[in-house]
């Protein structure tokens, strides 16, 4: 067992836990976008930053990937942490403003402006769907392609993957596309947006902005019956 100090409170967790798990365990929630229980930590969204150490040696780390250490001093909501977190959220808003998840988080953190060039991406490259597909669904149908500003997630060669079983797990975990993919039925977390298109998503050109890697789409198949 390892004892560390989070926001002044001692907390004892099992060896191998991350700082994020320890903080959640004692009841200090840390916002995340790319973390999910049951998937390997990835550290992509940087929302879970916390401050570790004391004095001039204190530094910001992503708590989802930082292992809990004996005697570690952690602050989850210092002014430095909150400032960094707000900046991350502002940048996320700049790239992906239509995501309900990001909007809610930004609102909760008191962000009232967005100073960067506005873009309308449909992906924040958090890699949740990639890990979901590989680790929980054991499929490995989608992955990262290219690099730098061209980095994207999708199937190899952009064609239907033989590994894909149309489980929809990728869309279920996606923090960027929930709003659009649930369409008019928020309780059904499966894509339904394309069902309203005329002509339907057979014409892929019109369909390309849908966050849907499935071919054919589950919703379309249901509609056919």
């Amino acid at each position: 067992m390892i004892t560390l100090k989070i926001n002044g409170l001692d907390v004892t967790v099992e060896k191998g836990s991350t700082v994020l798990e320890a903080a959640n365990f004692i009841g200090f929630p840390i916002p995340t976008l790319c973390h999910m229980d049951g998937l390997t930590p990835y550290g992509a969204c940087r929302l879970c930053v916390v401050e570790i150490g004391e004095g001039p040696g204190a530094k910001l780390v992503s708590s989802c990937t930082y292992p809990a250490e004996e005697g570690l001093v952690v602050r989850t909501a210092s002014s430095r942490v909150l400032e960094a977190r707000r900046m991350v959220l502002e940048l996320l808003l700049a790239s992906c403003p239509q995501s309900k998840t990001i909007q809610d988080l930004a609102s909760a953190h008191g962000i009232r402006r967005q100073r960067f060039r506005q873009e309308y991406e449909d992906c924040i490259l958090c890699g949740l769907c990639v890990r979901m597909c590989a680790e929980q669904m054991m499929a490995g149908a989608i992955g990262f392609r290219n690099r730098g500003e061209n980095r994207s997630i999708g199937t190899p060669f952009d064609i239907k993957s033989e590994e894909c079983r149309l489980c929809g797990g990728c869309m279920y975990v996606c923090p960027a596309c929930q709003l659009r993919c649930t369409y008019t039925e928020p309780e059904k977390a499966v894509c339904g947006g394309c069902a309203n298109l005329t002509p339907p998503c057979v014409e892929k050109e019109q369909f390309k902005d849908m966050m849907c890697y499935m071919n054919p789409c589950v919703a379309c198949e249901i509609k056919k019956d």
């Binding site: 449909d122 992906c123 994207s152 997630i153 999708g154 199937t155 060669f157 952009d158 064609i159 892929k204 050109e205 369909f207 390309k208 902005d209 849908m210 966050m211 849907c212 890697y213 071919n215």
Partner: peptide
Amino acid sequence: MGQGNIAAHE
């Protein structure tokens, strides 16, 4: 994303 450039790839 996703299926956007199927035609281009074919």
